[in-house]
Design a protein around this nucleic acid. Sequence first.
RNA 1: GGAGCGUUCGUCUAACGGUUAGGACCUCAGGUUUUCAUCCUGGUAAUACGGGUUCGAUUCCCGUACGCUCUACCA
Length: 508
Amino acid sequence: MNKRVRVRFAPSPTGGLHLGGVRTVLFNYLFAKKHGGDFILRIEDTDQSRFVPGAEAYILQTLNWCGLTPDESPEAGGPYAPYRQSERKAMYKQYAEQLIDAGYAYIAFDTPAEIEEMRNNFKTPENPSPQYNQAVRAKMRNSLSLSKEEVDALLAGNTPHVVRIKMPDNEDVTFTDMIRGEVSFNTSQVDDKVLLKADGMPTYHLAVVVDDYLMKISHAFRGEEWLPSAPVHLLLWKYLGWANDMPEWAHLPLILKPDGNGKLSKRDGDRLGFPVFAMDWTDPKTNEKNTGFKEHGFLPEAFVNLLAVLGWNDGTDQELFSMTDLIEKFSMERVHKGGAKFNYEKAKWFNAEWIKNADNAYLASLVQPYFDEAGIQVQDKSYLEKIIGITKERCILLPDFITQAGFYFAAPTSIDTASIAPKWDDAKKNFFEALCTAFENSNSNDHTVLENIFKELTAAHGLKPGELMLPMRIMLVGGKFGPGVFEIAATIGVANAVARIKHALTLL
RNA sequence: GGAGCGUUCGUCUAACGGUUAGGACCUCAGGUUUUCAUCCUGGUAAUACGGGUUCGAUUCCCGUACGCUCUACCA
């Protein structure tokens, strides 16, 4: 039982990656890295009708942004290529045939209309959605109910058909889930799932088993929504003769919408005003746009952190974890069984914490694009880093730096004169005019020098510093926010400060 | 309808039979900051319900309720 740890994330390329998907990746990744194993990205594109161009590239970009780069993938290749199921199509057929030959599967010729008819015929109040199972399969058109001659004739005539698993009657299938412990299903409750579709493509059920086997997957982690079909997969591993190679399973809890109940969906984000995708995603078919955590101004470290503790903790009070911490401390056994409601307020708190603790140069590189977009010119990189250092504790999301730090680079474009005007009078106006002169004469960029000048002048004018600080702040930064006024004046330079005060004076 | 899974403060969670049921977010009240934010101190707030087992149950068992997932030639 000392086989190499190999795990996979196997999305279908149908759209953007949302919180739940990224967390599944994260837990896979953490488990693999903790055990020195491999993390594989496999694209499950067996449903051509749902294929969305660009989705695969998007998924890969997202993983890279999060720092969850796969060891093997369609792009990176690897010893078990190809990693797209559509390119592995030819492999699945032989296993389907193997199952038919062994009596574990059969060929079914029923058309969608015939199945629909069956469902209508067998529908009762007690059983509103009849399944294609052992109770009805004898009444359908398949290799179990038809004679060999009929089947051969149908096959010779190229009649469209699928391959279905023949679920045994009343058999308990039990397995150990790493999160849930022992889980048990009775085969009578599960239907004869289609294994191979009429177009020759495998369904998820066949493909996941075959590929996990061929790719030597040691642990299979997926969302809780897969639990009910687990017995099908278990049986397939057994029927194919691979029982000894079967991976260990863990079904991850769902991430729920913040209000009400149910799985978090992309619609919830727009409805409640927060991102659910990792990065911006525009559906090329519908042009529907969903915003991402990245573009909202989240640090990837914060995003990974908040996802990790949504359903997992290390048993201590620690909440802030770096990727290195997570790799060291993660364990699947400590993952919760129940779903967790997503809370955007807490998510923002994680980001604020990460911004406060981040390296200034690193933050500068992340902030730069927002400044570019806002038209804020940065001449001196080290100046930017310095400014970020003194403003980062007031920022929750990266775009907050535009308002919290932008005034260090250019005079504010809008000045909140409305907050000054009510108490404005000539005495104050005279004071600020005198202050400009005094500042100019001092030619000092030392905040204590400037503060002393300011205080001496207020005394000379018979005014109180308290009623002049706020107006000065607003003149310098545009509003009621920011670090200490004299620190700001000293940082932007006394000449700039004077220019801003003079400009503001013309507006009052 | 059926099957499976789940259920501790509003939210995320800790407590692997014995705690005044702990922490964090949110919120509220103070303090620091002559702005705002940060920061600091403190408060409110939970074991779904009913039975067992046990000297003792948040914890183990059963039932009930509620919720979720699945019940496709989608994953």
